[in-house]
């Protein structure tokens, strides 16, 4: 009798547990108004209402960062990076602490990468941006900027002249002609901050792709890691599918933002030493916990030769990377393959 009761109780308990567990469904959405790129959100939720409530909050949070870190547009309600650029050589600008924190982080990255990732490179990047836009609008007029012009712009790219007053929360570009461009860092940084906040709020199964910056909050269905496909820049199937849980995966490459001139591809990732597009790889990917770091490092190792890049990656704990050479050959850092699932 006792045994039967026990068995009955066990059955009842199992039934209850089952009833508590709401089936999680997969939902997806895109944002096209953030950071001049397309963002993709995949998440598991009990129903669409719950998911869209989340994506609305996510969009609001990211939009705030988008406005703060925008260098092309001004917004009435807030001083942003464009305000700082417009006031270069004139006056310090009082800004939100999220801008101050970004610039402090960027300075740290600048020294960590021996100056390869430099948010003060704006004047040089602007020239390339203008040439790229011109070529896209009218391919016949495509051209490459004169090196003298680039060198002249490079006179105003010293990150030491970006003056930050943490206490007053102001930023000042010392000389007119200076300009910040945070394209290599801002997306990853904003994504990391926003995701941290959602992690603290208890979210468990979200995967976000902010223009090549992928960040996972928790894991996917049945607590299995999310699967992130790395596209082969030379075409065809995925290079690899990577298992991502509570982690970031960021790719950098010259295959989307580029223009053609004399049969050569001129992309958007500029080497501060040559002031020209970097030509070491087709693409690189960096895998680590922090999306801001992954974003910055993916730019950094894209403009370094493989040996230096590998040394940099190996010097950092918990960071792995993948390089796609022009030949199509793929190189991995030591621990990367452990994350490949295919």
């Amino acid at each position: 009798m006792k045994k039967r009761m026990l068995a009955f109780a066990a059955l009842l308990l199992m039934g209850l547990l089952h009833a508590c567990e709401k089936p999680q469904q997969k939902f997806e959405t895109e944002f096209i108004d953030l950071f001049d790129t397309v963002s993709q959100v995949v998440g598991y939720a009990a129903d669409y209402k719950e998911f869209s409530k989340f994506t609305k909050k996510l969009h609001e949070a990211l939009l705030e960062y988008h406005k703060l870190y925008d260098i092309y547009n001004s917004y009435e309600e807030v001083n942003n990076l464009k305000t700082i650029n417009d006031s270069a050589g004139k006056s310090p600008v009082k800004v939100d602490k999220r801008i101050v924190e970004l610039i402090i982080f960027s300075k740290k990255i600048h020294s960590q990468t021996n100056g390869l990732v430099n948010i003060a490179l704006g004047p040089v990047l602007k020239i390339w941006h203008d040439f790229r836009t011109l070529a896209a609008e009218n391919p016949k007029e495509a051209a490459v900027p004169e090196i003298a012009l680039l060198k002249q712009a490079n006179e105003y790219t010293n990150i030491e002249d970006v003056l930050v007053d943490e206490a007053a929360s102001t930023v000042f570009l010392r000389y007119e002609g200076m300009a910040l461009d945070v394209g290599a860092i801002a997306k990853g940084y904003a994504l990391e901050r926003v995701c941290e906040a959602f992690e603290h709020a208890g979210y468990k199964s979200i995967l976000i792709n902010l223009g090549g910056n992928v960040r996972a909050i928790g894991a996917g269905q049945n607590d299995k890691p999310f699967r992130v496909g790395i596209k082969n820049p030379l075409g065809g199937k995925f290079l690899n599918i990577i298992a991502v849980r509570d982690r970031s995966l960021v790719s950098s490459g010259g295959y989307e933002r580029y223009y053609m001139f004399n049969g050569r591809r001129y992309h958007h990732i500029i080497d501060p030493n040559t002031l020209c597009p970097s030509d070491y790889f087709e693409a690189v990917s960096v895998l680590c916990r922090d999306s801001a770091l992954a974003d910055a490092l993916s730019t950094a190792i894209f403009i370094m030769d493989y040996e230096s890049g590998l040394a940099l990656i190996n010097s950092l704990e918990g960071v792995e990377a993948l390089w796609v050479l022009h030949s199509g050959e793929i190189k991995y850092s030591k621990g990367f393959k452990a994350f490949i699932v295919n």
């Binding site: 993709q40 995967l207 992130v228 496909g229 790395i230 820049p233 599918i241 960021v250 790719s251 490459g253």
Partner: peptide, 8 residues
């Protein structure tokens, strides 16, 4: 077998 998200 597919991917949740693709990059690169």
């Amino acid at each position: 077998l597919g991917a949740d998200i693709a990059i690169g």
